[in-house]
Design a protein around this nucleic acid. Sequence first.
DNA 1: CGGCATCCGCCCCGATACTG
DNA 2: CAGTATCGGGGCGGATGCCG
Lengths: 127, 127
Amino acid sequence: MKTIVESSGLPADAFSAKCPTRQVLDHIAGKWTILVVDALTEGTMRYTELSRRIEGVSQKMLTQTLRGLEADGFVTRTIHPTIPPRVDYDLTSLGRSLAEPISALRQWTENHINEIEHARRQTRGAN
Amino acid sequence: MKTIVESSGLPADAFSAKCPTRQVLDHIAGKWTILVVDALTEGTMRYTELSRRIEGVSQKMLTQTLRGLEADGFVTRTIHPTIPPRVDYDLTSLGRSLAEPISALRQWTENHINEIEHARRQTRGAN
DNA sequence: CGGCATCCGCCCCGATACTG
DNA sequence: CAGTATCGGGGCGGATGCCG
């Protein structure tokens, strides 16, 4: 059962260059998207909580990633007009759905990191 | 049960900037990696078969992606010294293992593309 | 057929400074 | 606290040409 893309009437196919699925996949494949979505599975997080949870992310990239996730309907942004200001980020139901395969990918990598590093050490001379 | 990274003795943690898991995750998050791994789940493929299957990929990026997947132990490269030459690419058992969460991610995106495009249209004025 | 080498533009991303 | 604005380097990635 293939999804029919409403905007084009064609079946969804990530291997096709024209399919919008490709853009979303490229976006999800961004450097920080996986970590941000995955972090939010732990519950509501404030901006600075996210930046501390995800080591090494800059303000710019965190903001940019969050804006992208908002635009795609994966994350909600809630502003509390208090002093000091407080902004909460949450996964939408669509975002929680996406988080399942994404978490699986992170966990797989963590579980197999030793095999991968071993394979890397076997690669000799190639460069 | 967390994996202990042999090279560092520390638990695998993708949220930690120093963990090698991060590099692998960044690598998997490359623009073409998901499509290449996923294409190879359909079986052995030659170089030109891959380039036709994955619309829009340039020779350079296909080669570069395949070399990276080789180095990480996800893909094997078999050269048949015939005329004309023939090169077969296959997933290793580690690669087939990785392909499961990766395929899940592509399928999820294809299945939810209409919801995502709808969410995108709701976003007004933001830019 | 299955690459590699080179050039080069673009934009990703980090660093820094500033704001409500 | 939660951003925005701007600058600048690096590398991702496409185009082209050549090779065994």
